[in-house]
């Protein structure tokens, strides 16, 4: 039997890149301290913050809410609430909203649900009826827009999203592969956005936790999550990059952490070089997203569905 490096109890995980195994208790403690460290080092949460957690009901957003509530739930100066977007995906979203509601009830956290239908007049199913292949693009763009808008309206100072280490390094690679330095330099635990009142600062507390470990923590600590696959998910660049990085990690343990550490080391230099060269992070005047054109893709898309 494989046993915990610290206490000798039965292990639940063996991390190849560190050559050690851990039991449920010590694994959970470590994950929590890692998340706390990210929050502290990157100053993700400050005094008097009102944090909106973007809660889909999936493992990562559920864990984000669970941990922020665990760390800050008793702090009188910090408020936490959850926001779920109902895109209107039949046979998929209803169930996850139920799970999200249940978690909020259990934790005693205020929960809001907003929908594409109410906001845009159409469900995602209706919007993409004739262009199913583009569903993820539409969905991602519209969800992001709505999360920012609604969290701001509810008075949030931070918008916490569930991005884990795997999500983040996939984004690094995707932007690299697309040659999109504009977006590449805007990744991170707290992407520096233009300080404009209209934009709620996004934070990623789970950014240094591998996907496998966010899943394991939820399983071990009884956090019930929605596990179905979105009916629109399909092979994409992200899908290929995910497979590639998993293959590399399996063959060369530690790869994932190397990628993120390398990125974090390189980023300040990249940002500086980019600015020195006269490059500007061009921002869409309407929404603040990075763009290479006058009006960004999001705003174009919003215009296009109004008809």
């Amino acid at each position: 039997m494989i046993t915990c490096y610290k206490c000798g109890n039965r292990a639940v995980i063996y991390r190849k890149y560190e050559g050690r195994a851990w039991c449920k208790k010590h694994f959970s403690e470590q994950l929590e301290s890692k998340v706390k460290k990210t929050i502290r080092d990157e100053k993700l949460i400050e005094k008097n913050d009102k944090i909106c957690v973007a809660l889909s009901g999936g493992k990562d957003s559920s864990l984000t809410l669970y941990l922020l509530h665990k760390f800050f739930g008793k702090r009188p100066d910090i408020e936490i609430f959850a926001l779920t977007v109902d895109e209107g995906i039949s046979g998929y979203r209803k169930e996850s909203i139920k799970i999200a509601e249940k978690l909020c009830k259990k934790l005693g956290v205020e929960h809001h649900v907003v929908s594409f239908k109410e906001e845009f007049g159409k469900t995602l199913d209706e919007i993409v009826e004739k262009k199913k292949a583009r569903a993820c693009t539409y969905c991602g763009v519209l969800r992001r827009y709505l999360l920012n808008k609604k969290s701001r309206e509810f008075g949030a100072t931070k918008l916490a999203v569930g991005h884990n280490l795997d999500d983040e390094i996939q984004s690094i690679f995707i932007n690299y592969l697309k040659g999109d330095i504009n977006r590449l330099i805007r990744l991170g635990a707290k992407p520096a956005i233009i300080s404009k009142k209209e934009f709620v600062v996004r934070i990623k507390p789970l950014r240094n936790i591998p996907e496998k470990e966010t899943t394991l923590y939820c399983l071990l600590n009884g956090i019930q999550v929605h596990r179905s696959v979105c009916p629109y998910s399909h092979d994409s660049v992200r899908f290929d990059v995910r497979n590639f990085l998993n293959q590399m990690e399996e063959k060369y343990p530690g790869t994932k952490y190397n990628v993120i550490k390398f990125y974090d080391t390189l980023k300040p230099a990249l940002v500086k070089h980019f600015k020195d060269k006269g490059g500007k992070v061009r921002i869409c005047p309407r929404c603040g997203e990075p763009t290479s054109r006058d009006i960004c893709k999001t705003c174009e898309l919003l215009d296009s569905i109004k008809d």
């Binding site: 889909s56 009901g57 999936g58 493992k59 990562d60 957003s61 969905c139 991602g140 969800r143 569930g162 795997d166 999500d167 996907e211 496998k212 899943t215 399983l219 999550v225 929605h226 596990r227 179905s228 696959v229 979105c230 998910s233 995910r242």
Partner: peptide, 8 residues
């Protein structure tokens, strides 16, 4: 085997 899916 407990597979996990990327959750958006």
């Amino acid at each position: 085997l407990i597979e996990f899916v990327s959750s958006g």
